[in-house]
Write a protein that binds this DNA or RNA. Structure first.
Lengths: 216, 216, 216, 216
DNA sequence: TATGAATGAGCTTTCATTCAT
DNA sequence: TATGAATGAAAGCTCATTCAT
């Protein structure tokens, strides 16, 4: 009997995890509004009232999902970056972060869809929650860029707003590549990260040497 | 009777435009699911049955919105790019396209939100419709990159998939910058375009000279 | 075909009246909580959404019911009292009011149940609404008692609080008699009113002559 | 272990009392339907299954509450009336009963609310249960009135139905005064009882002397 | 061309009640 | 004696959609 197909009377923590897993799946597939509590309960293998007993409402459920997934993504990136210690040069840290990020997006595509698409389009309070996580990443990248600029003679005349803009561009490029990699067979996280490093870091290097592009 | 506060019995084309305008606003604000046909009809200043008479269903209405707005965006970019004629070098053409794109996003923020966020998160058939438009832009950018690579000795050993990846990165960076520019006071379309050109084109140049970044 | 069993496409005012009628019936039978919008809609011969379209919510529906029925009851009593004009002596006015009241309660038993029982037990905001109506009646009765006292030598040493208490007692007696009359076959409104006049007005007369009862 | 903050493993009778006390409170506050077994269990300091183990269902719980509270009220009145023994004249007995009644209502307002309002509005079987108790009181009062009438020459021509009606009126007046006294600061049970005796007994006296009020 | 009247279907949420220990 | 875990059934409310004029 042990290991039966359907486990009953599980402790609360386990059930909650099952529900959040089911919710990630359902929200990724249908979006917040179109996802139904019925489907989520069914996917989790429990009755609807239990979902409400533990997570209170659809809104709180989605918020809990966003928080958990954002924490997981940030944690994965932080773990990747933290491996070499703080003395590692900024380009190596960015490389480590990108690798961790693309790996996370590839291994948890539903989580990535929820964070990058669904949460950001559902208005407050979800968009804010997602924006907070993204801002964390943007600031991290901006820090690396600033650090790199500081290591260069004159810093290339780069202003703080330039740094912000560059960080936004780089993060956007990473988001786009993650989506592309997930739907293009055969693209590995390493390949995506390498493309972005080549594309971005070289461009940043030129910028700092004051080699700018200008029209005409 | 003429000149009454509310224009009645307008020709179909005018009414349809009013409805699509209202729909863009409502979909941008609330997303596809949360937007209500009631609100759209009210914003358009007509009764709900009339919306159905002209646009048939919420789904067709949203599709019509996506088509119209995608056409407008593509048209604006094409117009920007087409000014100099076909002999203009690829970097100048990219510059012109980016400028047109950021200008459109700044001048039609609701349209941009619908295209970049709402359409892509609502599943089929909307996501496909939006993907088609985005693919058009990606292919355009990929064409420019390929063209530039062809003009370089050996082309830097860049494969077609590299080109695709770079185009995805560049488009993603542009999308991210457009969002950032729209919510950061004082950022002009020109500034956003310049940031991206500096960031991207220089990086591409290095790539083509086979100067690649690699870990360790 | 004219006069068919089920009239469709009726004007809003008519439908609203039907809904309020159905609601009175359902609330009288089951109470506020146990009454279901489904049953009310069915009794009214319409679909549930129409009830919501016109009355907005169960709470607003119940409030509308209380207001309408309270207005009807007060109107009936006022009409009864007003017949003789203002110079009629207070006992005659009380008689007229009681007669109108018992007649209303007998002819609209559901309305009376809703006002006297259901509304008062459902907490705010319903109890307040019902209390306001009852207070109106209590003040009217208190006014008559005060008037009668003023017409007596010395007024019997009756204080304002005595007047309030007596009015409360008289109104409570009337409520009780109305319920009893409605469920006891053969009791007419006139009989109930006469009982109460004999019981109450004589007692009041004695009071004013300072003939008080005291223990031992 | 003894003397812990929360007493566990109490004997059944004690637990039942706690539950009924909690139920009186909850039913008085919210009414039968709106009161929740969850709240009652929490107020009683036990888990929900225990409530079901002892009281079986919400319906039986409410019934038990009504029975216990009705017994308490009737017992209090009986005790008050019984003090002087059976030879005491009817007016004195009524006075004693009213005093006991108003005292009970003032000291157990929740109990009084449940009996006078909630039980009577919830349909069968609760209304019947409450009606039985009220009938007991009405019959007691009717008995006193009948006794008084019998002591008068000719009995005033009062019929049995007159007696019933008068008893209904007197009880209704008492109910109304109890509510008024409970929500009007400074009104004592004695004052309420005195008001009612003056109002009612004098009126009854006149009735028996055939001094009737008649219109015109 | 244009609309007031109306609904089928579905959603979130709640609650009395029970199972297994 | 006592409870954490779990659910069937139903209720209020909303919305895309259509009918009749």
């Amino acid at each position: 009997m042990a290991g039966g197909a359907k486990a009953r009377r599980l402790p609360r923590v386990v059930r909650e995890r099952q529900m959040l897993d089911a919710a990630v799946l359902s929200f990724a597939r249908h979006g917040y509004q179109a996802a139904s509590m019925d489907e989520i309960a069914e996917l989790a293998g429990v009755s609807k009232p239990l979902v409400y007993l533990y997570l209170n409402s659809k809104e709180e459920l989605f918020t809990a999902v966003i928080r958990r997934e954002a924490g997981a993504l940030l944690g994965a990136v932080a773990a990747g970056v933290g491996v070499g210690g703080p003395e590692v040069p900024p380009d190596e840290r960015l490389w480590a972060g990108l690798l961790a990020f693309f790996t996370y997006a590839a291994e948890h595509p539903d989580s990535w869809v929820v964070l990058s698409r669904q949460a950001r389009t559902q208005g407050e309070p979800f968009a804010g929650e997602a924006a907070r996580m993204r801002d964390g990443i943007v600031r991290f990248v901006a820090g690396l860029i600033g650090e790199a600029a500081a290591g260069v003679e004159g810093g290339g005349g780069i202003t703080p707003r330039d740094v912000d803009a560059l960080a936004q561009a780089l993060v956007g490029a990473a988001e786009s590549l993650a989506g592309w990699a997930n739907e293009t067979p055969g693209v590995t996280a390493k390949e995506a990260a390498a493309t972005l490093m080549n594309f971005a870091w070289a461009g940043l290097g030129n910028l700092m040497k004051s080699e700018r592009w200008s029209p005409r």
